[in-house]
């Protein structure tokens, strides 16, 4: 009975993130983006559009801020004193950071966004009622809402033939966001299971990582000690976990965006190396 369940598992259900939560992670998918290699070409974004059936909204709606780019390149000009300020542009590819203490999760009234045992921040389209609270509580603002029935105009014949059959096309009124290409993760996991082995680095890549011409991005399982991603995180002395980073060498380039908000993101950024430095 459920009451028995409550009483016998009380201490387990009272554990928060500090004590590791109530379930063990099978994987902890993580990413690394080297900003020094990013040239701002938007290939990752384009790849994402193709892979994830993202709606193309057109110029008007884009300028209204109703675009659906799960992966976006943010541009900042922070060297205005240069002769050509454009030279100082820096790029920040921004997508869902799959935070382990995600602020979007506890505010969803219907539990449409939750944490999977893979360490992913999942979004259940069928469960979403579109209260948009998750987006309002996301410091990265990487959640995109279907303001219209985009599918009606986004892929006119015969473009609808290029839609990815591995995942759905979303209708109006639901929230969506980067999934770390969960459909590819699914296939890779199934294949590895059939071949009775662990999922390795070479089994798959998300579309953005695959599309990056300068190999600025890296993807893998943080819990796998041998994965490249884990090695890079360790190399830059950034640890996954909710509390303050304890870097031995603070000059190392690795950082997570909005570390101070304690949301524990799964994406490591490597700062751009400046000319002056």
């Amino acid at each position: 009975m459920s009451l028995e369940n409550v009483l016998s598992n009380w201490s387990k259900y009272r554990r928060g993130a500090e004590e590791g939560g109530h379930h063990e992670y099978e994987h902890k998918w993580a990413m690394m983006i080297n900003l020094d290699l990013c040239i701002g070409c938007n290939a990752c974004s384009t790849a994402c559009y193709a892979e994830n059936n993202l709606a193309v909204v057109g110029k008007d709606r884009f300028s209204k801020g109703q675009a659906m780019h799960w992966m976006r390149i943010e541009r900042y000009w922070d060297q205005a004193d240069k002769e050509f300020p454009e030279q100082g542009a820096s790029f920040l590819p921004m997508m869902c950071q799959q935070c382990n203490s995600a602020t979007c999760e506890p505010v969803c009234p219907v539990a449409a966004t939750y944490h999977t045992p893979d360490g992913l921040n999942a979004q259940v389209y069928n469960r979403c009622i579109g209260s948009r609270y998750c987006s309002n509580n996301c410091p990265f603002r990487v959640r995109y809402f279907n303001f219209y029935s985009y599918y009606e105009s986004s892929w006119p014949e015969p473009l609808n033939m290029q839609l990815n059959p591995d995942l759905s096309v979303r209708d109006k009124g639901v929230m969506e966001k980067c999934t770390f290409c969960v459909q590819r993760i699914r296939v890779a996991k199934d294949k590895a299971k059939m071949e009775n082995r662990k999922v390795g680095d070479d089994d798959f890549k998300p579309a953005c990582v695959q599309g990056c011409p300068t190999s600025a991005m890296m993807f893998g399982d943080y819990l796998d000690e041998d994965s490249q991603v884990r090695k890079t995180w360790d190399q830059y002395q950034v640890k996954m976990g909710p509390y303050k980073q304890d870097k031995q060498e603070p000059e190392l380039r690795g950082y997570r965006v909005f570390e101070g908000l304690n949301v524990d993101p799964s994406v490591l950024y490597l700062e751009r190396v400046r000319e002056e430095v």
């Binding site: 409550v6 387990k12 009272r14 554990r15 379930h23 506890p106 939750y114």
Partner: peptide, 22 residues
């Protein structure tokens, strides 16, 4: 209280956000 706690304990996929189940 027991209604909420039972519901939470049987619905373990509910979003964690780093927070305990109950």
């Amino acid at each position: 209280f027991f209604f909420l706690a039972s519901a939470q304990a049987t619905f373990l996929v509910q979003p964690q956000g780093g927070k305990p189940v109950i």
